[in-house]
Design a protein around this nucleic acid. Structure first.
Ligand SMILES: [Mn+2]
Ligand SMILES: [Mn+2]
Ligand SMILES: [Zn+2]
Ligand SMILES: [Zn+2]
Lengths: 144, 144
DNA sequence: GGTTATAATGATAACAATTATCAATATCAA
DNA sequence: TTGATATTGATAATTGTTATCATTATAACC
């Protein structure tokens, strides 16, 4: 079974918090890990049901919260619609170019932008902990 | 009466779209304009009711959509919770430092960051139309 | 000014996403 | 093995928002 490291991260988190393991959590975790996409709860729920048809959607909500808590995942919010979850563990920080035509997005990173944000925060005597930068526009494909 | 320019913007929009004027829309517009805050629908609804107690919240939702449509306002989405509306007309573009302790936020602008976003988009052959940058952390006050 | 087509309104139902509740079940330390 | 307690799935409740619809208001036309 792959994803030993990620499972170890989750195990420590569970132990540390006095939680318990469960088959459902394992199914959800592994399905999430093997699907390298920005998934909604519902999309992940549909995928996990193939492996475990009796799973409840509430458990998917709850488990994704845990995955965010232990640093394996992080939330992504576009306009309205449901929250999306992306991989976080051992994935470099990145921001997103969101295409307003097709809905796809491109992952990008710019060290200078990151640095300038720090400078900006310092100017306001603000301790920066994180940020979300969403850039909207039209992607290459959709420009035809 | 103040805000003649903003009212003119709204008037042209209404005329152009074949809509009609109404007392409610005027009340909502003026209350929005005189309140220089990042308001939720509910907050604005509460304020407008002081002037016009019979107003319905649906009309506030509808009118804020119009204000965004004509460029007088724009939406702001933090984590979860309701959408906030801020002034847009004749307000320079800016981004936000959001304090995770007190919930307040600071408006900031950095021309270099803006420029670098353009560069980043161009590299991906992406036509940039706009962006939302939220920076999370702890503000001066909350650091004690 | 009165007529009339049509847009706007407010109440409220419907909806979507999420969280809370709870009885039944599973986990795991002792 | 036992027993305290965490987890589960179903589903009710909640929140924020949009849709519906009968009634009312607006404004172009005469
Ligand atoms: Mn991503
Ligand atoms: Mn602002
Ligand atoms: Zn596209
Ligand atoms: Zn603060």
């Amino acid at each position: 079974m792959a994803f030993e490291e990620e499972q170890k991260v989750f195990d420590s988190f569970v132990r540390e918090k006095g939680l318990k393991h469960s088959g459902q959590r394992k199914d959800i975790l592994l399905t999430f890990l093997k699907t390298e996409k920005h998934l909604t709860v519902d999309e992940l729920y549909t995928l996990v049901k193939k492996k475990n048809p009796s799973i409840g959607i509430a458990t998917v909500y709850r488990t994704l919260k845990l995955l965010c808590g232990c640093g394996l995942s992080s939330e992504l919010r576009f306009g309205d619609g449901p929250v999306r979850y992306e991989h976080f563990y051992r994935h470099e920080h990145h921001d997103h170019l969101v295409c307003v035509k097709c809905g796809n997005f491109i992952e990008v990173m710019d060290a200078e932008i990151e640095k300038l944000q720090e400078r900006l925060a310092k100017k306001e005597d603000f301790t920066l902990q994180g940020h979300k930068l969403l850039m909207y526009g039209v992607c290459r494909k959709c420009k035809g």
